[in-house]
Design a binder for these strands. Structure first.
Length: 476
RNA sequence: GCCGAUUUAGCUUAGCUGGUGGAGCGUGGGACUGUUAAUCCCAAGGUCGUGGGUUCGAGCCCCACAAUCGGCGCCA
């Protein structure tokens, strides 16, 4: 199909936009972005700007209209003498979040926020906002604080109910940009390391995580479940692709009421043939550090705008992540007077104590076999342990990676299932994959939302996903 | 699943020992030619989450229910 190509100059070169040929009678494509204006690319030019009204102020002869688009904010000045009575009145009556097209001259101005402003020559409202129904999110709604007076815009019931409108406010827009860069960084990391992207089904027949609750879905007279992890299906493809990864949603029907949990979260998972626990961990460290580095390279201004300490993020990008065996962690905790005994799983309250002195993420390895499910491979050097790892983020953000070597021989996996009293039948396809050329292998799952939440310094994981799903909320 | 809270105008909230609810933002009207979350004046806007109880009288005390938030368990 023939399409009209419009080439637009942006900071990073030419961007191709595709407009339907002739059908709309002309192009709606936008050619000027606020971010570029504030970077000085349009000084002295007369331009056409398309955007939304963020705020207005002024007198009855001079109006200031702050416009926003996806790249930033800019102050526009409208003078009665330039615009004429009719257009000036329209500008005066335009409400917040009206969409507008404004023509004017870009000037440098020390008085304008950002250093530039536009002196308007024309002003046209595209989508008006009704005064009977003004944009409900105002500065008061954004002023939500918790009991300690800390800003907590993600915790307001009103903002959660109006999430579809909250998305366009500056904090949420910033979080979505950080999130995008994090997703891109994960793809780049694994592709650069010769991993192949691979998709597993979201409807599944059985559990992956022992103990985690599954969401049931009616499935043509049968019951299916929403996947908790791609792992079992990734292991099936491991002999074909050897190094594979995905970024996909996982679902867990846990009534967790914490700032680290969602019922639907984005899971970056990798699986790797011929790999030891140490080698898998090296990729876990590699991808997390690459995400931190990418955020600094691509989103420094955004991180600063939400008051994130850039030196802290740089520390996470530039330093190796130490490894600590489970036994050592337990001893450390006991030394701190924490009531924990060997064989206990380390819950969040203990993780928090353990990580309070960490200045970078730490791996915890070699958990007792009794604390982990059957697919974790037993350490041949000491069969009390399994070859696994968790990566714990500092600043109280908790576990961001869980992974390790998999039980790979058919004989051993059957023994582990029997030891646990887990029935074989639901895992028959998984056991089958061991019967034909099993090899040592492993992988990990990374909670993408958790990593973004941590690196952004968010007050709640809800802050970094557009429409959070928790045990109490599936709307909007 | 467990524990702890909250619910007053569109939003954010004040409300004393129980005696007919105040404000800021937003909206409408007015003033102002350089504002920076503009400012100043005026106005409209409330069956105080729902149901019941105590009382001469309930936003406030008691009970139930509902919605939501925070923390824990579990995990990414």
């Amino acid at each position: 199909m023939v399409q009209t190509l419009i080439f637009i100059k942006r900071m990073k070169g030419d961007i191709e936009l595709h407009a339907p040929n002739g059908r709309t009678g002309g192009s709606m494509a936008k050619t000027v972005w606020i971010g570029d204006i504030q970077d000085g690319l349009h000084n002295g030019q007369t331009i056409e700007l398309k955007g939304w009204i963020k705020r207005t102020r002024g007198s009855n002869k001079l109006r200031f209209v702050v416009l926003r688009d996806s790249t930033g904010d800019i102050q526009c000045v409208g003078k009665l003498t330039d615009l004429g009575e009719e257009v000036f009145e329209a500008m005066k009556g335009a409400l917040i979040e009206s969409s507008v097209i404004l023509n004017g001259t870009v000037v440098e101005s020390e008085k304008a926020p950002g250093g530039h402003e536009i002196v308007a020559q024309s002003f046209q409202i595209v989508g008006a906002v009704d005064p009977e129904r003004p944009f409900p999110i105002n500065k008061e709604a954004l002023n939500v604080v918790d009991e300690d007076g800390e800003p907590m815009p993600g915790g307001s019931e009103f903002l959660l109910n109006n999430r579809h409108l909250y998305l366009r406010t500056s904090r949420m827009t910033t979080m979505l940009k950080l999130r995008s860069s994090a997703f891109g960084a994960i793809h780049n990391y694994f592709r650069n390391e010769d991993f192949i992207e691979y998709q597993a089904p979201n409807f599944v027949a059985g559990a992956v995580e022992g103990g985690s609750t599954l969401f049931e879905v009616p499935y043509f007279g049968e019951t299916a479940y929403l996947t908790q992890s791609w792992q079992l299906y990734a292991e099936a493809a491991m002999p074909a692709l050897e190094r594979l990864y995905t970024i996909a949603p996982s679902f867990r029907a846990e009534e967790s009421r914490t700032r680290r949990h969602l019922t639907e979260f984005w899971h970056a998972e990798m699986e790797m043939a011929w790999a030891s626990n140490d080698e898998i961990m090296a990729h876990g460290e590699g991808v997390v550090r690459h995400i931190a580095r990418t955020l600094l390279d691509e989103r420094e201004a955004e991180l600063s705008s939400i008051d994130r300490d850039l030196e802290l993020v740089a520390r996470y990008a530039d330093n190796p992540y130490p490894r600590m065996r489970y036994d050592e962690a337990v001893e450390t905790l006991q030394g701190m007077g924490v009531d924990v005994k060997w064989g206990d799983d380390l819950d969040y309250s203990k993780e928090k104590v353990l990580t309070q002195d960490f200045d970078v993420p730490h791996f915890l390895t070699h958990y007792p076999k009794i604390a982990k499910p059957f697919y974790h491979r037993v350490d041949t050097e000491d069969e009390k342990y399994v070859l696994c790892h968790d990566l714990l983020a500092p600043e109280g953000y908790g576990e961001i990676i869980g992974g390790g070597e998999r039980t790979w021989s058919e004989e051993e996996i059957l023994r582990r299932l029997d030891e646990e009293g887990t029935p074989r039948e639901p895992y028959q396809f998984y056991i089958d994959t061991r019967a034909y050329g099993g090899v040592p292998h492993g992988g990990f799952g990374l909670g993408v939302d958790r990593v973004v939440s941590w690196l952004a310094g968010a007050s709640h994981i809800r802050e970094v996903i557009p429409f959070p799903r928790t045990s109490r909320r599936v709307k909007p």
